[in-house]
């Protein structure tokens, strides 16, 4: 079983932080707007601090999940299929047979480029194709994995699935 590059935690933490800040802005902003504009005639005193506390709590959970995700993520290229294990709360184990691979992408978001990482996305004809993406690879490994998957997919020459 192969694990991701530990650096992927940085990517996930930054994303989680960003989302937490956006959510906190919305929550606290809404609370302030409610109490300042007089839309709510007599808001309880704890409204704004409460919203801030809620936003903080959600943010902390998000960060914890982002940190923990790394420990759960595993994948393996088996003889006939790609095997993936992931999920902090809901643990998912996916098998994607090579015959079903339609095409393989490797891609790098700006954040991934900054941290020197890449994601490999495997497309099947299934309706949940986005499920099969392997993040947190070094560009080199991503390239090799893509080639490996491509070769395996060709080797197992599928009947057309659809």
């Amino acid at each position: 079983m192969e694990r991701l590059t530990p650096r992927v935690r940085v990517v996930w933490l930054v994303l989680a932080l960003f989302r937490a800040v956006v959510l906190a802005g919305l929550l606290v902003g809404a609370a302030v707007a409610l109490s300042e504009t007089g839309l709510w005639a007599d808001p309880p005193e704890a409204l704004v601090p409460g919203a801030a506390a809620l936003a903080l709590a959600i943010g902390l959970v998000r960060l914890a999940v982002a940190w923990r995700r790394y420990a759960v993520w595993r994948f393996e290229t088996r003889a006939d299929s790609l095997y993936i294990e992931r999920g902090v709360f809901t643990r998912t184990k996916t098998v994607a047979p090579y015959v079903r691979v339609q095409h393989v992408d490797s891609r790098r978001s700006p954040l991934e480029r900054a941290t020197g990482l890449a994601t490999v996305v495997v497309y099947t004809a299934g309706s949940r194709s986005a499920d099969v993406a392997i993040p947190g690879l070094t560009p080199d490994r991503a390239e090799r994995l893509r080639e490996e998957l491509r070769a395996l997919a060709i080797e197992s020459e599928g009947e057309d699935a659809v």
């Binding site: 809901t90 643990r91 998912t92 184990k93 098998v95 047979p97």
Partner: peptide, 16 residues
Amino acid sequence: YYRVQTVSTRRSIFQR
């Protein structure tokens, strides 16, 4: 079976 694309097992914290 020959129409299957991917198979996944999912377990939420409650299921676990």
